[in-house]
Design a protein around this nucleic acid. Structure first.
Lengths: 352, 352
DNA sequence: TTGAAAGCGCTAACAA
DNA sequence: TTGTTAGCGCTTTCAA
């Protein structure tokens, strides 16, 4: 494990016959130092191949310039895309991003939070796992003096004292379902995202039921199939609906992966979208438009979420005193493609 | 930026009237310490809410238990999926993963490598950007005494002194194209992945040409459209092919995103797969089978790559002396779906 | 089994 | 503008 030790401030200082402090300041562009000295220092640092030791720097300075991030999944378009923006914005603000993945597992999530605290990150951005229902760990993080914000997914009910950057889940789902109603659908189903301690499942379902209420359409329990947020939840959910017989004519998928699972189930069952079942889902992806039929979605601006999340946490880091809560709600847009288009409905009514 | 300071070893030591060293050892399960003392120490640590300071620990111990990772893109199935395995394997081995994203940009990649060195990661796993053609930075990393391995993408020609975990690109592409030839195609095209300083583009193209050579089919330059590895490269590549007129009957896509771009172009041009053009691509995704027609692929075992990459770098970290190169080549499998199936070809020859 | 001493490489006061 | 002093919180000898 031993390796030839790195060049240090001391090496540069000795070579130039100045103090370490002078070198340290010069390297960090401190205004104290004369242009001449600064130039020399940079010169020698380059010659010697100096690489500052962040461990030492951060330990000494009592801040790490690191942001901790916890997400439930990586290989999903939403998180991958959001994280690109997080990395970019953090980098632009001179922060390093320490990413951890909970794999939708509450225990792993807890360990990751402990690790991030031990790494002394300056702040934490988290999108909680679908299992997380114990909020003690977040209180502990807070007690450790590290600001934490929830992005996209937060505990339900909301946790006082923590800022959030959320999507307008209720309105997004409601608008989509009202669109389906306008086209003429009356038998409405909902699949996925059922855990009652997560905001996104609850609010999307609420948007769904609100849409039905607004149009005096009865909510039928047997057409609401809760579950997780993954592809397999969509697949199994639709299969269950099918086994029960008496299908709805439209389903709202709680997430994009859920919609993929539904596509898969529909294909296996030899059914057709939109003829046998029509669909809109919450969340877009770069290839929704390549599915057949192309999938209509409630679009979440993934990059904006990532960017705003970083800005929010940086603000909290820089102003630890006025710890008032920020609650940003980011609006969605409905993107209509081939599913649930007026056209597909017309075809059907014509045929009926 | 100030915050109430954390609990330290000293706090625990004072409370127990033992030395810091004893506490440090006890907390790390060092064999020196009596069970009794150890128990007490853990007890108090818990009571006080002690969280070890990794910055201090790593600075003092001269190793960080951190792995640095650089990938070109995040929102792509291949990297997202590979990274899940990297995180998992690293975690199981008590390593933290520091992920950085180059966005296919060589300059950013260089900065990230410098940052990782400054963070004093114990080793680096990198999949280089499609722009990277200056290898000096890798030599510099080596000089800094930090082991680095290339995974999936490495500079071309290969860089002596660095271990690699690669896919068998040549064989994967060759087998796929030979399959297409067996089905009866003779007019063969290749789109994407053109930069000659990246192994994957070069070797996949080589597999393509080898397949043609093996079957005495002439390689036609105008049907080989180089470019990058992204969706837009596939789209633009296919459009160029179309503008030139005189299309091939089959194209091999250098990557999965390239194939998506081709699907998009085909759709916009009002053409049909596989009737007008047939396709196989290098790299699978969780929803290839939902495309229409479902896409046949050369499957790369993403999880295996990530796992093996971590194992390789850990081995290098643990045995810095015997620095012999490891070169792992991971085989691929051809997954046939609706594109380029015998069936689709039969239909066509029947119709021709 | 325990602890004293020395330092990892850097930065933040404060003096000069 | 530069340097001195005093840590940051921990681990690694090595002696007791």
């Amino acid at each position: 494990m031993k390796r030839k030790s790195h060049v240090t401030l001391e090496d540069i200082a000795k070579k130039l016959k100045v103090s370490e402090v002078t070198v340290s300041k010069a390297l960090r562009g401190h205004s104290d130092i004369s242009d001449e000295t600064a130039k020399k220092v940079h010169q020698i640092a380059k010659e010697l191949g100096y690489s500052p030791n962040y461990l030492a720097r951060n330990l000494s300075a009592r801040r790490s310039n690191m942001l901790g991030v916890v997400v439930p999944k990586l290989a999903h378009f939403f998180f991958g895309s959001m994280l690109e923006a997080v990395y970019k914005t953090a980098f632009e603000n001179n922060y390093e991003t320490i990413l951890t993945v909970s794999q939708e597992n509450a225990e792993l999530e807890r360990k990751h939070l402990e690790t991030l605290i031990s790494m002394r990150v300056d702040g934490i951005i988290i999108s909680i796992s679908q299992e997380t229902n114990d909020t003690a760990i977040f209180q502990w993080v807070k007690k450790m003096g590290v600001p934490l914000i929830f992005v996209d997914r937060r505990p339900e009910p909301s946790l006082p004292g923590f800022s959030t950057v959320l999507i307008d889940d209720e309105a997004g789902a409601r608008n989509a379902v009202e669109h389906a109603i306008k086209i003429g659908y009356k038998k409405m189903g909902f699949i996925g995202g059922g855990s009652s301690w997560l905001n996104i499942g609850k609010n999307r379902l609420m948007g769904f039921t609100n849409a039905l209420k607004n149009h005096d359409i009865p909510v039928r329990k047997e057409w609401i199939v809760p579950g997780g947020f993954a592809t397999k939840d969509g697949f199994e959910g639709f299969m269950r609906l099918h086994t029960d017989g008496n299908m709805p004519e439209f389903v709202f998928a709680a997430t994009y992966p859920v919609a993929l699972g539904i596509y898969q189930a529909v294909k296996e069952l030899g059914m057709k979208i939109p003829d046998d079942i029509d669909i809109i889902c919450f969340g877009d992806s770069d290839l929704s438009h390549l599915l057949s039929p192309s999938l209509s979605c409630v679009n979440q601006p993934t990059h904006e979420i990532g960017t705003v999340a970083v800005q929010t946490i940086l603000d909290l880091i820089k102003n630890p005193d006025k710890q008032k809560e920020h609650h940003l709600i980011i609006p969605t847009t409905l993107i209509l493609r081939e599913t649930c288009s007026g056209f597909s409905r017309l075809k059907k009514t014509g045929a009926a």
